[in-house]
């Protein structure tokens, strides 16, 4: 049975004691009820635990990015930041929960590109990304890679494009499920190459990658977070990265632009959001903390390992990200509609 002493060792470093943590929980509960109190609340913000809600499972790329920035943000805000995973329905459960949470800055949503595609995928979304949230800022953009099983003939992106155009009827393209970044990138790939391939859906990246390594499916487009290790070791073939710049951890991979597929530009961006009624002063606090976290050397190094970089300071602002979110919504809507993809 769990007993005190062991937790003294295993406790988060930030918390002062078990009692302290219990007290912090009580404080959180207290804040939950009395929140939304406007200026007073904003002035004393933050004075309790801040919860970052991650709409995907612990250990996934979004979760990893969240936990990376949570630590320096917590240091900057002077309060513990707790990461909570609320999975379900392509991230819309978590987003719905945060949209209706107390707008007091203690509940923050981390979401990725799916924030912009959900309105096109779900017909009865209980929230509107632009209207029901205030953006805190963009966090990072993870490049995507075009990869294939390692015994597929083509060796360059050009050859791959020719190959899929030639063999449209038999080429299979894997994705990690409806609305997943890999599916979106796959849609773009088919659009850019003017092909219709057989899409094979998986429940998450893990099994999709397993089948790709096992040679069961032909190609996939996924985040560097998931594919870097496999490309480096030659378990799968990498053709290109989908960002304007090459990626440090995969220096041999050309960009799609260099390799002759300039239309295929996509990255998995991550952003932070709070409910729309949250006072501006609190949003500013969070944005400032985010900007500091993004200059943290540890964050920069770790993101580089994942093939990603923190966004420049001018993008990590509410204004810039709101604009980006709105343009992303407009970008994906016709693509998703044309492909006939729907999640309900």
């Amino acid at each position: 049975m769990p007993r005190g002493p062991r937790y003294d060792i295993a406790r988060p470093r930030r918390s002062r004691s078990v009692i302290g943590l219990a007290a912090a929980t009580l404080t959180l509960a207290a804040c939950g009820g009395g929140g939304g109190g406007g200026e007073d609340a904003a002035a004393s913000y933050p004075d309790g635990d801040i919860t970052f809600v991650v709409p995907f499972s612990a250990g996934g790329p979004t979760d990893t990015v969240t936990r990376l920035i949570a630590e320096p943000m917590s240091a900057e805000l002077g309060q513990p930041v707790v990461v909570q995973n609320v999975e379900g329905a392509g991230g819309t459960i978590a987003a719905g929960q945060v949209a209706s949470a107390e707008p007091d800055g203690y509940t923050v949503l981390m979401h990725h590109i799916g924030m912009s595609t959900a309105p096109s995928l779900y017909s009865d979304l209980p929230y509107a990304p632009l209207e029901d949230f205030k953006t805190v800022g963009l966090v990072t953009e993870v490049p995507m890679t075009i990869v294939a099983r390692n015994d597929l003939e083509p060796t360059t992106l050009e050859e791959l494009v020719a190959y899929v155009q030639e063999n449209q009827d038999t080429v299979t393209i894997a994705n990690a499920g409806i609305g997943a970044a890999s599916q979106l990138c796959g849609l773009l790939f088919q659009q850019a190459t003017d092909t219709t391939l057989t899409e094979v859906a998986y429940e998450g990246t893990g099994p999709a990658l397993t089948d790709l390594v096992g040679g069961q499916v032909d190609i996939m487009c996924d985040q560097t977070t998931n594919t870097t290790g496999q490309i480096q070791s030659g378990e799968i073939k990498g053709y290109a990265v989908t960002t304007p710049e090459r990626v440090e951890s995969l220096p041999d991979l050309p960009t799609t632009e260099e390799a002759g597929l300039p239309d295929l530009q996509v990255g998995v961006w991550h952003g932070l959001y709070v409910p729309t009624e949250t006072p501006d002063a609190i949003v500013e606090e969070l944005t400032a903390a985010l900007q500091v976290a993004l200059t943290d050397q540890n964050v920069i190094d770790q993101l580089a390992e994942l093939g990603a970089t923190p966004v420049p300071e001018e993008d990590a602002t509410p204004e810039a990200h709101t604009e980006q979110l709105s343009s992303q919504i407009d970008l994906w809507q016709p693509i998703i509609e044309e492909a006939g993809v729907s999640a309900d």
Binding site: P2, L21, T25, L28, T51, Q84
Partner: peptide, 20 residues
Amino acid sequence: LIFVVALQLRLSLVGPWLGG
């Protein structure tokens, strides 16, 4: 004791209905 203090689950002890 078990779930909140020891396992540190993030559940509020008293919710909004009771002004918690």
